[in-house]
Design a protein around this nucleic acid. Sequence first.
DNA 1: GCGCATCCCTACCAATCGGTAGGTTGCCGG
DNA 2: CCGGCAACCTACCGATTGGTAGGGATGCGC
Lengths: 208, 208
Amino acid sequence: MITCANGAMTLRDAPSNTRTQLIESACRLFAAHGYAGASISSIAKELGLSKQALLHHFGSKNALYSLAVEQAAAAVLQLLFDAMEDDHPPEDQLAAFFASYQRLLSVKPAAGQLVLRELLDNALTTQEGGAFATLLESLVATVQATERWQGAGAAGALAVVTQLLGAASLMSSAESSLSAKFGSATVTKAQSHTAEISAELVSGILRG
Amino acid sequence: MITCANGAMTLRDAPSNTRTQLIESACRLFAAHGYAGASISSIAKELGLSKQALLHHFGSKNALYSLAVEQAAAAVLQLLFDAMEDDHPPEDQLAAFFASYQRLLSVKPAAGQLVLRELLDNALTTQEGGAFATLLESLVATVQATERWQGAGAAGALAVVTQLLGAASLMSSAESSLSAKFGSATVTKAQSHTAEISAELVSGILRG
DNA sequence: GCGCATCCCTACCAATCGGTAGGTTGCCGG
DNA sequence: CCGGCAACCTACCGATTGGTAGGGATGCGC
């Protein structure tokens, strides 16, 4: 194993690059194996560091996890905000959001996967104004702003958001499992269909 | 802690009841915390047993996990087979399946949650003819039998199945996380909306 | 040159992980 | 009455978990 020689590595190459890289590794590994399934030493080892270096930067596993989830959620939230800038009707805003969400997933599956994981695991030490919470709330609010769902209350909108998010996220998150059963060629082809099917689901459910 | 007194418990109450109960506990805990997040001792402890009693019955953690997933998948698969008994068009069969799947989730959320988890974790020692694999294959085949998707190939059908499954499963699986952010009252109300929204998604996507 | 903070290391800790070994209890067929 | 078996136990194993303590190298401001 090439662990970058003890003292010789200490000339750091950027203003705290390793921190960023650690969060990125954490994002990927937490997304792939879940909170309990990814150990901090395995995350640190991806960069040739010891787990103590990781703890030095983040203090605890949960703190790192929170950062990773928040960063992933922030990336998704940004897509939503971008889609909401133009003052189109909320139906179009959501359609635009889910379209760019699909684009994000094809480039960086870990983001959506981590959000999905967090919805299942609920391991995040919930921050009131965090990106994850804001993402969910904004989605619900936007659905509630649509003509069809504005009378349905938060619960109805939450149900819509949950189903659309589940539909949009599962394919890229389940890639490894599906590849083992249907072959990676089939799965890759299926992923290319996902965007337009998702678009159809979104517009279908928002307009009735 | 009341661990049922050492020898006095040895009169077992049924032909091998504890085995069944252990699988049930495993199903719940694996569903709630994932494969890595649920330890065999925590599963055994739910029934006041030691982890060695569990290992005595199943041999290894993975064997127990496989049984739990297979049993959950078999329960879902049974719903699909039931829905396919009448020779209605495949669109109606799938609609009936997803309707009863929603009913199952409201009674036993762990079943769907475990299937969803397995799609993410891919921890199952894949059995070729297992219920989990059969479930996915049967769903894909049925979607492929619909008028709209019969020309789209397995990949297109797989994309449809994945999205519908994700939409149908996420709400009940994310209950704890959503309750923490929106309140359990709102989530409970949202769950009651899930069935009809899901039905709309299914018929919408299958018929175009 | 000196103090100090940043970064990363080795060494160590208690707790828990999945799993093995071996013993004890109670039922059941001979 | 007795041997075998299923069920469950305590005790233990090595490995790994998240986390602490403390030290060494580097670079920056003074």
